[in-house]
Design a binder for these strands. Structure first.
Lengths: 196, 196
DNA sequence: CAACTTACTTACTAATCAGTAAGTAATAAT
DNA sequence: ATTATTACTTACTGATTAGTAAGTAAGTTG
C-alpha cells in the first residue's frame, strides 16, 4: 500500500508547486495568480499542476493547511515553548519581521481576509482555525506574561491577543502600501506599551 | 464648454457603476469582480461601463479618488472638525462600525492592501495619499487629545495613530473571517486603553 | 517479463476576461 | 433644420481562465 521508508514518491514538483503558490498568494493575492503562471515559472505544463492539485480550491486549501501545520509545529517547538513570555512575544514579532525581508510579504491572514468570500469553503474553515489557534496561543503567552510581571496591559488576555495580532497583520499590509518604516513604528509602539 | 447649471449630463448610470464597483470591491476584492458582473447587476451592457470607465484601472482609480474626496470632506465637516478629540475619535470608530452593518465590508485600505501590487499605479498612489492623510488627521486628534487630558497613551501621536488605524483596518478583516464579536472586542480594548 | 502506478505532456473545451469598433436613438446646440 | 454630442447597444476580438481526457515514458511490483 505504501513504501516503507517514504510515502511520497515525488519529492519535488508537488512541493515546488505549493511553495510557489504560497509565495504568489502572499505577494499578490489568491485571485491574482493562475495555474499558467505557476506552470510557466516551474517549467511544467498547467496540467501537471492539476495532476497534483486538481482544482485551485485544492491548491489554496493545501497552502492554508500547511501553514496551520507549521504554526502548530512552531508553537510546540521546545525552543519556542520553553521561552519566557516576553521572549515568546519577541519570537512572534520576529516571524512577522521576517516577512518584511521576503519582499514584504503579508501574513497568511492578511493575504486572505479581504478576498475571504471568494475562497473555497474548506479554505475559509482552515483559515479560521489558523487564526483562532494563533490567538489562543498568544492569549496564553500574554496571560502568563502579565502574571509574572514581564508584560503590562489592561483588559483580558484574549482581547489583548486579538488586538495585537490584528495590528501585526495590518502592519505588514501598511508596509506593503508604503515601506518598512510604518511597520517598525507600529511594532515599536506595541513593544513600548507591553514592555513595562 | 459646459452647461451652466450642471457639468454632468448623466446623473445616474455613471454613479451607479461607481457605487456598485465600490461595493463589490469592499465585499469581494478588486480582482474578484468583472465588468460583466457590474453590467449584469446594473442591467446594462459591459460596453456601457467601458464608455464611462474605459479600463478597469480607470474604474478602480475612480473609486479610490472618490473615497479620498469623501475623507477630506468628512474631516473638514463642521460637525466633525468642531468636536472634541475624544468625540472625534468616537466619530472615527463609528465610521468603522458602520462598515459592519453593510454586510461586514472591510475598509478601503484593508480591501486593497493585500492585492496592492496588482493594482494600477495611479490607484496605488491615491491609496497611499488616502492612508497618509487619514493617519495625519488622527495623529493631530491624538496630539490634542493627550494635551487636553482627554486621551491617554505613550509614544508619539504619529506612531499611535498608525497603530490605531492599522488595528481598525485589521479588525474589520477579522470580523469578515469570523464574526462581529472580535471586532467589538478589539475596539473595546482600544477604548479601554485610550480613555483614561 | 507483464501489469500496474506515477508523473507527467499534448491537445482540447467552454467560459470568462478586458477591451474595441461601429452603429443608433435621444437630446442639445447652432 | 441640421449638426454634434451623449449614452448607450450590438457584435466582435484575442487573451486567459480553470479544468479534462487521452496518451506516454519511466519506474515499481508481483
Amino acid at each position: 500500500m505504501s513504501t516503507p521508508s517514504a510515502t511520497k514518491l515525488s519529492p519535488d514538483t508537488r512541493t515546488r508547486i505549493l511553495d510557489l503558490a504560497e509565495e504568489l498568494l502572499l505577494e499578490r493575492g489568491f485571485n491574482a495568480f493562475s495555474y499558467q503562471h505557476l506552470a510557466k515559472e516551474l517549467g511544467v505544463k498547467p496540467a501537471a499542476i492539476h495532476y497534483h492539485y486538481p482544482s485551485k480550491d485544492d491548491l489554496g486549501t493545501a497552502i492554508v493547511t500547511r501553514q496551520l501545520r507549521r504554526l502548530r509545529k512552531w508553537r510546540d517547538l521546545p525552543r519556542v515553548a520553553d521561552l519566557s513570555p516576553r521572549e515568546q512575544f519577541d519570537a512572534l514579532l520576529a516571524v512577522y519581521e521576517n516577512h518584511l525581508g521576503h519582499d514584504r510579504r503579508v501574513c497568511l491572514f492578511g493575504a486572505l481576509a479581504a478576498d475571504f468570500r471568494t475562497l473555497p469553503v474548506p479554505m475559509q474553515a482552515e483559515l479560521r482555525t489558523f487564526n483562532r489557534e494563533l490567538t489562543e496561543w498568544l492569549a496564553q503567552v500574554l496571560a502568563v506574561g502579565r502574571a509574572t510581571g514581564a508584560l503590562r496591559y489592561v483588559g483580558s488576555p484574549a482581547a489583548k491577543a486579538a488586538q495585537v495580532l490584528t495590528t501585526l497583520s495590518g502592519a505588514l499590509q501598511v508596509a506593503r502600501v508604503h515601506d518598512e518604516t510604518p511597520f517598525q513604528v507600529i511594532v515599536g509602539q506595541l513593544r513600548l506599551e507591553l514592555f513595562s
